[in-house]
Amino acid sequence: MTQELSSLMDGELGEQEAERSIAACCASEDQKNTWYLYHAIGDAMRGQAPRRLELPRATFESLNAQPTVLAPRRRPLMQGTLARVAFAAAASVATIGVVGWIGTQGGPAAPVPMVAKSSSAIQPVANKTTISGAVAPSLDVQDYLAVHRQIPSPELYRPVNNRAPAAR
């Protein structure tokens, strides 16, 4: 039924199917809620402000109950193993600043954020996630991932806005 409703919204139903679907939709409170909900989601995904409709309270309730699927999930830092933390943080923070073992500066006792030195490399955000405990030094997975997948990390380019761009 919800599939049909979704198809209706996408204009994929034939005339008769659409009529039936509309009739069914307005006959049930549940379906009506789903209808509002789908539109609210659609608006949000298109980046539009929610429509000025008197949305039923149930719509908001079911919105609250929805799992967040389309937004990146943020993991609490202390959840899971520290290695996983490093990985998740690499995804959300984009750069793990603590690269004592691979950084070009800093002594063994003082891990420092990476500093781009070559002319075309761009300074990563100084979002420092300090990870202490068993798994040290941490892994700056994101840099390797960006090279491997050939999807440059926008975080590497973003801070350029505030300083002289390093790239030619």
């Binding site: 997948r149 050939q150 999807i151 440059p152 926008p154 380019y157 973003r158 350029v160 806005n161 761009p165």
Partner: peptide, 15 residues
């Protein structure tokens, strides 16, 4: 990257 006003050129390999 509009914020960085930068166009990054690359050639697709196997990604």
């Amino acid at each position: 990257f509009p914020d960085a006003k930068t166009i990054r050129l690359d050639r697709r390999i196997t990604a």
